[in-house]
Nucleic acid binder design. Structure first.
Lengths: 328, 328
DNA sequence: TTGTACGCGTTATCAT
DNA sequence: ATGATAACGCGTACAA
């Protein structure tokens, strides 16, 4: 199991005849080193392509300088964007990003946490955790996005309730005759909130809504669920779908059925991920401010890692209705 | 800089009164431990939530059990899909995945390599490297996707030349009156290959082609480049775009200009990423077999890491024309 | 069946 | 301005 050893400080020491402590001082600029000695060391480093072993620091109980990122998958473009932002913030701050996928599976998520703990990550950013209780046990600074809230940890989320409300009110305003909600998987915190916002706004003006349940976060390509196939869509329907990728799939399905979007049926998505601009018709949707979400997650994590007290344990970011061409 | 120490084997040893080596034997199942002793250890582990520090192993010159993944960004869905596959392979094999973004910037890429070397990763998978020479210097087993080929390393790529050829022949077959190629950024290995395939096929039957240069891999939303805006599109054009996301953007732009796709103008993309199924009209494209690419990369890396000789230093996977609705 | 002792790459402290 | 040494968490060879 032993691998070919890479160059170590000891090797540099042997080559230069300079002691290890001096090498360390030179590399970390943590003490006086005579210029000529420095040059010798520099030469040996270049010759051997020596790079300090970052893992040693975590052995000493220093920061390991890596951060874990736990997300469901990249098949949902929202998490691609989220992870691009987070990954870049981590990278720019000089940390390493250890990436883990849960596939929205609880056991996989638990294994991810153990892996990250084994790496002694300095912190974790976790999106849509199914197992938030693990945080307090593991004792790693953690910020989560859209997790079922655990009082002990910092959670970022968006105002899903208002999102549902905005969606209903807009569908009503443009004169939809029937209100349909394609509801997300039950395990997501956001599912009920979006539903409730939609439902309460309908009830407030004495309207009924129709519900279609969806079990999957994303259905790639033409993989339309049976629940949707079983539903009888009608001209005049206004449909609020729990995320963009499913909304676009459904538009595609409606067009195959012979409906026109938005002339016959209006569709609103959720996320405002980049695909909402690419689809034709362009998708009307509820924006989640990904970049701000990512920044909030990362900056809060930095504060937690520096043992600062983060004031709010739950922070709710606003959503916004983005009107495009899938509604009329 | 010292952090709150996490539980160590020493702590478990103090709690149980059992020596560190016995704890080690128990945890790694590497020697005899009396059942009753094992139970004591187990209890202490559960009480303290102890997880072994994985970083120590790399200090000893053992495998660090992490693998670096270097990609440009996730704003191009092809790399999202690629990374999801790679990330899952890595995770299932019990490794940690350290994710790095280059943003197609050479200096950023160099910093990534140094970071990964600092973490003593056991191997690296690198997509669209701009700096392949670094591999041999760093001495880390590496497999690259679509890198400018360096004889010393293993490179996976697709038959871009044939992709360009397939695109031309299809556009010709469906009766395009003019042949337009939206060419990718010059720094990508694939750019010339795709162009050459398209160009040579045109020349073979004495046809001319028009070229539009694009500087960016992806242009999100409505960010249409000046080169495209300056071009005078015409009814009867057949357009071959160097990737899906730009193809979809261009379709959207053409529709804004009043053209119908595919009735007036046909468009072919490249990648067959999931967005090609979501767009309306669905995108005709040249498929890169992402899953196979990812698997090839990962399995070749595993072999390299086990010091096996990988026979081919460059492996070319086939592409395929996927006919959908953006061509007629 | 268990313990002792050494080594790994690095940093901090103390001495020179 | 530089060197010697202890310490970190863990695996292994060897002793008991």
């Amino acid at each position: 199991m032993k691998e070919k050893k890479q160059t170590s400080m000891r090797d540099i020491s042997k080559i230069t005849g300079v002691s290890i402590s001096t090498i360390s001082r030179y590399i970390n600029s943590s003490g006086y080193v005579k210029p000529s000695t420095g040059e010798k060391i520099e030469a040996a480093i270049n010759k051997t392509n020596y790079v300090p072993n970052r893992n040693v620091k975590s052995v000493f109980g220093y920061k390991s300088h890596n951060i874990g990122l736990i997300v469901p998958a990249f098949t949902n473009p929202f998490f691609s964007e989220f992870s691009t932002y987070i990954g870049n913030y981590i990278q720019e701050a000089g940390y390493g990003c250890i990436l883990c996928f849960t596939g929205d599976d609880k056991n996989t998520e638990i294994r991810n946490w153990e892996l990250l703990k084994g790496y002694r990550v300095d912190g974790v950013i976790s999106a849509r955790s199914l197992y938030p209780d693990v945080w307090s046990k593991l004792g790693i600074p953690t910020v989560s996005f859209e997790s079922n809230h655990n009082e002990q940890e910092v959670n970022i989320c968006v105002d899903n309730y208002n999102g549902g409300s905005l969606a209903f009110n807009y569908l009503n305003k443009i004169g939809s005759k029937r209100f349909v909600h394609v509801r997300g998987p039950e395990s997501f915190k956001a599912t009920n909130e979006r539903f409730n916002g939609f439902y309460d706004s309908a009830k407030a003006i004495d309207k009924n809504i129709e519900i279609i349940k969806s079990e999957k976060d994303y259905s790639l390509g033409t993989d339309i669920s049976d629940n949707i196939k079983a539903f009888k869509f009608k001209k005049g329907d206004g449909i609020f779908v729990f995320n963009d990728i499913n909304a676009i799939n459904i538009i595609s399905y409606l067009i195959d059925l012979g409906f026109r979007v938005p002339e016959d049926i209006s569709v609103i998505g959720f996320d405002n991920s980049y695909i909402s601009e690419l689809s034709i018709p362009k998708l009307t949707t509820i924006e989640q401010p990904v970049k701000e979400i990512a920044l909030k997650c990362f900056s809060n994590l930095l504060e937690l890692m520096e043992h600062k007290v983060v004031v709010k344990s739950e922070e709710v970011l606003p959503v916004k209705l983005i009107i495009r061409d899938s509604t009329r």
